[in-house]
Nucleic acid binder design. Sequence first.
RNA 1: GCCAGGGUGGGGUAGCUGGUUAUCCUAAGGGACUGUGGAUCCCUCGACCCGGGUUCGAAUCUCGGCCCUGGCCCCA
Length: 410
Amino acid sequence: MLQKPRGTRDFLPEEMERRRRIEGCMRETARRWGYREICTPDFEHLELFTLKSGEGIIQEMYVFEDKGGRQMTLRPEVTASVLRAYVNEGKVLPKPIRWCYFADCFRYERPQKGRYRQFWQFGVELIGADTASADAETITLADELLRTAGVTFDLQIGHLAPMKRLTQDLPPEGQRAVMAHLDKRNHAGLEQSLAEIGRDDLFEPLIGLVDSRDPAAVFEIAGDMPERSRIEELFAILDSMEISYTPNFGIARGLDYYTGMVFEAFAPNLGAENQILGGGTYRLAHLFGGDDAASSGFAVGFDRVMVSLGEFPLEKTPIAAVVSTPEARARAWEVARAFRAAGIQTEIDLMQRGLSAQLAHAAKTADYAVILGRRECESGRVTLKNLHSGTQQEMTLAEAISGVSQHGAC
RNA sequence: GCCAGGGUGGGGUAGCUGGUUAUCCUAAGGGACUGUGGAUCCCUCGACCCGGGUUCGAAUCUCGGCCCUGGCCCCA
């Protein structure tokens, strides 16, 4: 038997209903904040992502050569595409630009819990605003999005400036290593890296930075800096909005293009892959030939949110099954059409089953049976049977439709 | 790329210290039952992940691959 590709999943209707429901929550929240949907290609020129993230990511992507000999790749994320689209067509739009997307992405990685080779991200990008308010909007929207979806999470917010200030004298490789260790809270690795470059004196301040839960203490350690007022303003807005978060000035997000604020959210009930959201402020447009627009944004790991949420009840709408004898076949089609026109999910027998078997089937899949035989054909009425209570009654078609509409599923 | 544990009908399983036709539950389809359902009974359908090796004989032992689950690395 043919298997699905490694790291991919089939979603059956039950699961799709759950996914669409949560997707709808996220879309609605973004809409209320003025973020309108953008859709970019599933595949892009490879160069788009190597420009953004370096050559090293090629081995993690689905790269292919198209029939014209072009180096292409399935998108591993959406931010690069959105910024490319901005450079291509968004330059003249009034700023700030608020865009959101819900899209599948592809990464050639080893699958594990919450990590798949095809996965979905819901994200927003706020382009052209370079203020504490813009930072605050990005974070607050992220918080609201996750809360609306119903997921339990820890929100951690940091800023790259203090860490960069402390490590500004280090060689680039040293700085990179130090930030990586801090991001992973790897104290032993940090100590070793600092020793290798002869800067053991930085160990205590850097640890203090990461462990600090008070922004004021961070400036005590790292000293004053130009970004200080913006950072303080950001946290003031978040506090006034009563956002629940943990300051974490050890977040490095690993990538060079982040310029200031960075934030992440974690779901405590997930395994090793427990980060469900990540974002920050960045500059990318200039890489793709555009202006140096300041941007901020985040992406939600939609599949991880779904794993974290687990099973939850779905609201049911009533289902009607039209059950008929062979002689009432034509009438059954008419009645089914009328039910569907009223917006009711309605199914009709396609298996040429006997009345008994039709009812047996309806009892498993529907809430109401609309029974049609010679008697109903002659009277022009229908028999409506409630399949949960077992009660049934003959009535007009209109009465049956309104009865099903009003009672809902049991 | 690395580590651990797994892979038997659509789903869940027994067998796995080699030996008849591979067990059971469930689902699905049909019948008992041509105007009334989920019960019951009967029937049908349908599986040893793939390939090599050992053996008279492999679901079982062995090797390789693939895939699944979790972890490492990475995490845009």
